[in-house]
Design a protein around this nucleic acid. Structure first.
Lengths: 183, 183
DNA sequence: CGCGCAATCGTTATATTATAACGCTTGCAG
DNA sequence: CTGCAAGCGTTATAATATAACGATTGCGCG
């Protein structure tokens, strides 16, 4: 599921395929090194700002998650770190993940039991989350603002006299680059 | 902190606690036998209407799920059936669950890896689902209509050029009977 | 009826995801 | 420089889910 197959540009490539930096679906195969460094840097800031410890293990785990736009499971992180010589137990991965989730620099995709790096700077507020769009073909996860939708969900819940605490909205489908699901 | 004190169950209860039949949160401890029979009957109809086979095992699994308003895990179903003398392998439970999900008579709660009986008659359409409200205290799951919310989610996705296929909306919090989270 | 096919289920084994328990190490506030 | 909480290692196990393959069963159709 990880070998993201970029279709040979058979069709004349339009603007949409040019990895609009504002799109929630940038090309996963572009300038990984530099952008990754930036992303790690931002995470470092978040930890610093909140007086949390961005330990070596947490950095390593975060780097693996942020290295792809796709969601990634805990045991895949474990395996990739292993290949690089960092052999740890599953529990250590999960502990790092918990810290990263608390810090808000990664999110959990409930429908896949997997994790992905948060690439936005706003909505890091706890209890409020953006909508997640997960591609069934390439695995990429994008985030779009869903504040008004979450508000409506809150109202719907209260209409049932339900007191909401945590809400999530996830959409599974096909990202722009994987088009309509045709292969 | 407000001490919104929930009276012990012996206290004189008001209208809200009287299990309004229209509420998505009926009292889980009421007239289980009769209502359960009705629910099973409705499931039987769904299977019949769709030309699917409501086998003995599927009936048993469905009955266990429908026996509570809370969500229930596959292995808990396994255990409860076991206590009643029906010893099967996990895979059999999962196969029955898959059939029940396909028929739309149960739903899967992604955030808990658990299942619950659908008690509504509308929204059984595939690809469209109601909003799930899951109580953190008693485990009860209620469903409320979310058609307009799902529509908005679809629009938000399309705004990101994302082609949605399946949408998940789940809310975790406290049901009316468990009030504000105070114990 | 009974043949044949597809669906269901049994059986065994294993994969995948996640946490418990306990003790050692380390960073750092005082 | 010491005491404590956070972090992490280690071992073990729990909880959730699926693969593979053969036996059985329901049932449409000749």
């Amino acid at each position: 599921m990880s070998d993201t197959q970029v279709p040979p540009n058979a069709a004349p490539v339009k603007a949409e395929a040019k990895a609009d930096p504002r799109s929630p679906f940038p090309n996963p195969n572009q300038q990984t090194a530099k952008k990754l460094a930036q992303t790690v840097e931002r995470a470092t800031q978040v930890f610093a700002d909140r007086g949390l410890r961005f330990t070596k293990l947490r950095q390593q785990v975060f780097a693996e998650i942020a290295a792809t736009h796709a969601s990634i499971g805990a045991y895949e992180i474990l395996a990739r770190l292993g290949e690089k010589g960092t052999r740890v137990a599953p529990i250590s991965i999960y502990r790092a993940i918990d810290a990263l989730l608390d810090a808000g620099v990664i999110h959990r995709l409930e429908s896949k039991n997997a994790f992905f790096a948060c690439r936005r700077t706003d909505h890091t507020v706890k209890g409020k989350r953006p909508i997640f769009l997960s591609c069934e073909k390439c695995g990429a996860v994008g985030e779009v603002d869903g504040q008004h939708i979450f508000d409506l969900i809150g109202e719907a819940a209260k209409g049932a006299k339900f007191n909401p605490r945590v809400k999530f909205v996830e959409v599974s489908g096909f990202c722009p680059r994987c088009a309509t699901g045709e292969t």
